[in-house]
């Protein structure tokens, strides 16, 4: 008898919780769908941007087709190692990106001395890749200088790729982090300062701040180790320094 009121309270509680969850997911879906950059009307997302940029980007890209032109500058670094979702762009872009993708899987196991020779070969390949990457960077720069506005990548915020090296690293880290994230606390957060040398190698990963969740810290370090295998060298043969805040995606966890 006496437990009835509490069960009733529980029902109310779950309903409030469900409503909250629904609203939060709605909110996240809406915000993730890239409405912020221009604060445009939410109903007119990607297409609008595309249309605006089309005439601006296409002449610079110098490609015959108008449509693939604006899409091209953004994708290379993002799509290079993993997905090839975009329609075939010009050959100049696909070629360099595919080489580091090949070099990637071979890197992770420089364990034994037996593989020394292979590593030598790999080094050579790497330098080659660096040259090619430099070429991409050049391209990227040119495009970036032209139109800073979102280049029409569906679902992108305009910083996804191409706009600068930091965002490129960020997106590589994000991809890796998806496959390593784990935690044992509610809202873990880790701030790591990465120093990347001119070969695209992480020479230092300094833990600047942590919420103290060791499981989470380790998952971040694993993400860095994993992503590092596919890093392209920073532009202009220089090093790169950047702080990154790692945390779980908003609503999912409680």
């Amino acid at each position: 008898m006496t437990l009835q009121p509490s069960r009733h309270e529980g029902r109310l509680g779950t309903m409030v919780a469900v409503s909250l969850m629904v609203h939060l997911t709605m909110f996240v879906i809406l915000t993730r769908a890239n409405f912020f950059p221009g604060l445009k009307y939410p109903e007119a997302p990607v297409y609008y941007v595309d249309v605006v940029n089309l005439p601006v980007a296409s002449p610079r890209a110098g490609s015959p087709a108008a449509a693939p032109g604006p899409a091209a500058p953004a994708p290379p670094p993002r799509t290079a190692p993993r997905e090839m979702t975009l329609p075939a762009t010009s050959p100049a872009k696909t070629k360099p990106t595919s080489t580091p993708a090949k070099a990637g899987p071979q890197k992770p196991t420089p364990e034994t001395a037996r593989e020394f020779e292979e590593r030598l070969a790999q080094l050579e390949r790497e330098t080659e890749a660096r040259h090619e990457a430099a070429a991409i960077e050049e391209l990227k720069k040119r495009v970036a200088a032209g139109g800073r506005a979102p280049a029409g990548m569906p679902g992108a915020t305009g910083k996804e790729a191409g706009s600068d090296y930091g965002s490129y690293i960020q997106s590589r880290l994000r991809d890796a982090f998806k496959t390593t994230i784990a935690s044992q606390s509610k809202n873990p957060e880790v701030v790591v300062h990465l120093t990347i040398d001119r070969n695209g190698k992480v020479v230092r990963a300094r833990l600047e701040r942590s919420s103290g969740d060791k499981v989470f810290e380790d998952s971040v370090m694993r993400a860095i180790a994993k992503a590092e295998q596919n890093f392209l060298p920073p532009p202009r043969g220089g090093g790169f320094d950047q702080g990154f805040i790692f945390k779980p995606q908003g609503v999912g966890k409680k």
């Binding site: 982090f177 994230i181 499981v215 950047q242 702080g243 790692f246 779980p248 999912g252």
Partner: peptide, 12 residues
């Protein structure tokens, strides 16, 4: 600082 996030429900 750049933010890196991922869905936080994964187990090791």
């Amino acid at each position: 600082y750049l933010e890196v996030t991922a869905p936080g429900t994964r187990l090791l």
